[in-house]
Design a protein around this nucleic acid. Structure first.
Lengths: 128, 128
DNA sequence: TTGATGTTTCGCAAATATACGAAATGTTTT
DNA sequence: AAAACATTTCGTATATTTGCGAAACATCAA
């Protein structure tokens, strides 16, 4: 007769949904995750005026339609806004939302152990 | 006889390469562009100790192999490091690089017009 | 040696992001 | 009305990201 083992497993899994905060941080970070968009936001947030799509396309190594898509994404994220000024379109920072995004990200960046703890005795770096 | 127009166009295009700074901002932002990675970094940067992959998978709504990939990405970005502690692997913040990333991002976030300028008379929001 | 355990890698599928040129849109100029 | 212009949308191609389960790997326990 065979030896039989019975094992009973009780799994206490406590899967989280992500908090609003975590999702917001990820969303804003995503908006900043492409050099074209970083460049645009950097330029617009520094300027004290608006900026034409045509000006940007001169400076950036992408075509017009691609630039337009990046602008659309930034607008969708609420970080910039466009004013139609025929035949041009002027873009500028959406101050309110940009300030909010900055606050969310800065809070995240500053909210950590000030102590200079880290794994001291690192033996091996995994994930070569 | 047809009317003939001749147009001479001199195009002064001045396409930029992205600066190191802009590329770095985009790279760090990308590392933060997924809720799982935000969660991990938030947790590790707050903790005064390390954290097992097995602990994380309990809390997060993704499978083991998916979590492993996110950890790999964070490690590749230099933001965390792993210590093999059989049969576990302990992960923790890479303080030096994380502090640098924070500095890069914070400088970017703070480097802008303090004046509360924005497009005042926005007539139409484009990119509906 | 075999089995149990924690973790990663592999192979794949589906979704999303990035890029471009052509065509469409809307406005001004001729 | 037609041409010129700035910009967006569409269609499409390609690359990257995200996710999972199965298999592999390395270590410890029996």
């Amino acid at each position: 007769m065979r030896n039989i083992k019975i094992k009973i497993l009780i799994i206490m899994s406590d899967k989280l949904e992500f908090t609003q905060e975590v999702q917001e941080i990820a969303r804003f970070s995503k908006a900043l995750s492409h050099p074209v968009r970083v460049y645009i936001l950097q330029k617009l947030s520094k300027m004290d005026s608006c900026c034409y799509s045509g000006d940007l396309v001169e400076e950036l190594p992408v075509g017009r339609s691609t630039l337009s898509q990046h602008l659309k994404e930034l607008k969708y994220a609420g970080l910039i806004q466009g004013e139609i000024n025929p035949p041009y379109i002027k873009y500028c920072i959406n101050r309110e939302n940009w300030d909010n995004a900055k606050k969310v990200l800065e809070d995240f960046l500053n909210d950590n152990q000030s102590a200079d703890f880290s794994c001291d005795n690192v033996k091996t770096i995994v994930h070569t």
